[in-house]
């Protein structure tokens, strides 16, 4: 299996961040079984920028939900930071979501009638160890990191689409998670805002964050180092992207 870090001599001994073996997911609804994922084998190392690509209905979102602990696999093994995640209670999964992973959604999912700062502080409420006195400071740092310093006390309804998504990215940063899942982050944005948002994710990756991007658009997937294609619930291909796009080049073209 190709890895972003095969070139490093220490890579082989490094514990993968995510290690999935023979994972499958079957939805049962009114006794009708709908298989969604089959025998998925996947390893993701810390620091990767990976895209999961596939048409709608391919199972890519389901895979992301399982990897992000919003859903559980039906069969197979999911090891996160070397630890098996089977048998975790709902509350244990909630704590993992609060501390280890975060999400950026296509529809932003910001609290309405709340400010940028309030939105970015929200995950810290559920974080078991970060003291409340640090919340505002951390949130402000995350807001500054996505370039929204001047919008800190704006209501989210006063923001443009791109600014909303950057608020969501700041929110995903604030708990310093092990991995950020971005589910079609540019899906609701025009192309300029989309490139800005991808630029923000690129910057995060450059500073060492692990990002797993889910998209059906090749142009968006190409920002990643590695593209995993999902088709009909199976991994169709897993390749390193050699012609990686960069937001800096594109924005200057516009």
């Amino acid at each position: 299996m190709p890895s972003a870090h095969t070139k490093s001599p220490r890579a082989a001994s490094r514990t993968p961040l995510i290690e999935v073996t023979k994972l499958s997911k079957v939805y049962v609804n009114d006794a009708v079984e709908t298989p969604v994922l089959f025998d998925i084998d996947l390893r993701v190392q810390s620091g990767e920028f990976m895209a999961i690509m596939g048409p709608s209905g391919s199972g890519k979102s389901t895979l992301m939900h399982i990897l992000g602990f919003l859903d559980r696999p039906t069969h197979g093994k999911y090891r996160f930071l070397g630890k098996d995640t089977a048998g975790r209670t709902d509350d244990e999964l909630a704590i993992i979501r609060a501390t280890k992973v975060s999400f950026v959604f296509q529809a932003f999912h910001l609290l309405p009638r709340a400010t940028v700062l309030e939105n970015v502080m929200l995950p810290l409420l559920y974080h078991p160890t970060i003291p409340s006195a640090e919340r505002q400071h951390r949130a402000q740092a995350a807001i500054n990191a996505v370039g929204l310093f001047e919008r800190t006390n704006f209501l989210t309804s006063q923001l443009s689409g791109g600014q909303k998504q950057r608020t969501a990215i700041a929110r995903s940063l604030v708990t310093e998670p092990q991995v950020i899942f971005a589910d079609e982050p540019t899906g609701n944005l025009d192309s300029v805002s989309g490139i800005q948002v991808m630029g923000a994710l690129e910057k995060l990756h450059a500073s060492g964050h692990t990002i797993i991007l889910v998209t059906h658009e090749r142009s968006t997937a190409e920002f990643a180092d590695r593209i995993v294609h999902i088709l009909d619930g199976r991994i169709a291909s897993d390749s390193r992207s050699h012609s990686r796009r960069s937001s800096s080049g594109l924005t200057s073209l516009k």
């Binding site: 992000g68 709902d90 509350d91 909630a94 979501r97 999912h109 929200l122 995950p123 559920y126």
Partner: peptide, 16 residues
């Protein structure tokens, strides 16, 4: 509903 989903995704437990 979406706010509740979001809070759960951000790590809110059922009891929260």
């Amino acid at each position: 509903t979406r706010e509740i989903g979001l809070r759960k995704a951000l790590g809110a437990r059922t009891t929260d």
